[in-house]
Design a binder for these strands. Structure first.
Lengths: 208, 208
DNA sequence: GACCAAACAAACCGGGAGGTAGGTATTTTC
DNA sequence: GAAAATACCTACCTCCCGGTTTGTTTGGTC
């Protein structure tokens, strides 16, 4: 790990540059030359900090996902927390190149590493925990399986963000997420409790 | 275009091999060496048929999508047609490497070409046409916008197939598709008409 | 069977990829 | 201030990439 402050700065600069290039080119398509040009450093500097291109990608992902996604249940875990979480993720994808790159690296198959189920499973777990609380409270139909809902939500969100990127460079992603909830909420929430939830999110979340 | 039958065979062999390698490595990750080894031909043969790696990928996609996805409305266009179509697509992705490769080439960003919205838009149109029929017939709530539903379905299906691939190598994709419909149908279909539709599909479709 | 076109195979090309080794600059320690 | 540690920079390395050129084989026509 870096010991001097200038090294911390260089390392961060390299990670930011790598994020930008990985976001736009993917792992295989990103060349070290492009990353170096973006960072304004040389290959010696990069290899001082990371022992390979692969470790660079791995560190980028590991650092990002050690602090993200942001789960903030405001002391009341449940369904609105999941809704707000999806919106925070949407905003993060819009605003933060490290998040975009990390998601891309994790999703892409046959590059970087075969996509690890780990991230998916972790997101599903986070989601399911909140849904379990919601179900205990009667906010979700008791006959539904929270793990299945979580699985569907994570999958659907993945597809939403990919197609949003293709079609509108993610400009419409928050709308798409709200739209997803408008379809899904009536299916999973008992009718009399439906009005408790805000498909557009409660805007209390920060992208992190 | 090929004039001799042996050339037709060689061309098809190259396309099949390319599909396999593109499916597993993506466009940038697929090397011509790998494709040639898979096909058992030489580079001269490949360049006789295709003027570049990019044209190879483009032809693969164009040929596949000229005959797919399979829309079979059995003379009665509507919602069950869309349900069956998603199941046909799921089976196609499970069984046909050219479909898998074509989907991957079309979805991946920054490779091959920037992902064209065209395929997404075409799938959305196919879907929306059927949903329009369904809505005229009263099978879909009249306050909903069929274009939005179609957009959501295409996005969600994209995410389902990607995560299914990561988590189970697509073994569970038909189940995931059926699960999607079980969440979505109650949200878009008037309650008294819900029992008309089969989330698992009516198995009348062939992958094509 | 001779000739030509079509369909390949084999050899070659230049460039760029990721990574390595040697050198230089900056900071820290004593 | 000298020496050592840290943090880079520069030049080099091998290999593999997509594509090009030359050579050989196969099929079709007369």
């Amino acid at each position: 790990m870096p010991k001097q402050e200038r090294a911390e700065r260089t390392r961060a600069t390299i990670l930011d540059a790598a994020a930008k290039v990985f976001d736009s080119q993917g792992f295989v398509g990103a060349s070290l030359s492009d990353i170096l040009a973006e960072a304004g450093v040389t290959k010696g500097a990069l290899y001082f900090h990371f022992k390979s291109k692969e470790e660079l990608a791995h560190e980028l992902v590991a650092e990002q996902f050690s602090i993200w996604p942001p789960v903030d249940d405001n002391g009341k875990p449940g369904l609105q927390t999941v809704i707000d979480l999806t919106h925070a993720m949407a905003r993060g994808l819009q605003e933060n190149v490290r998040i975009r790159a990390s998601i891309r690296l994790v999703i892409e198959q046959g590059t970087f590493t075969d996509p690890s189920p780990d991230s998916y499973l972790r997101w599903i777990d986070v989601c399911r925990d909140q849904l379990d609380h919601a179900q205990e409270r009667g906010d979700i139909r008791k006959e539904l399986v929270t793990g299945d809902i979580a699985n569907f939500l994570v999958s659907a969100f993945t597809g939403l963000q990919i197609s949003s990127q293709v079609l509108t460079d993610r400009a419409d992603l928050p709308d798409r997420v709200a739209g997803m909830w408008r379809y899904v909420l009536p299916a999973i929430v008992p009718p009399r409790r439906l009005s408790r939830f805000v498909p557009e999110g409660t805007a209390a979340q920060t992208p992190g």
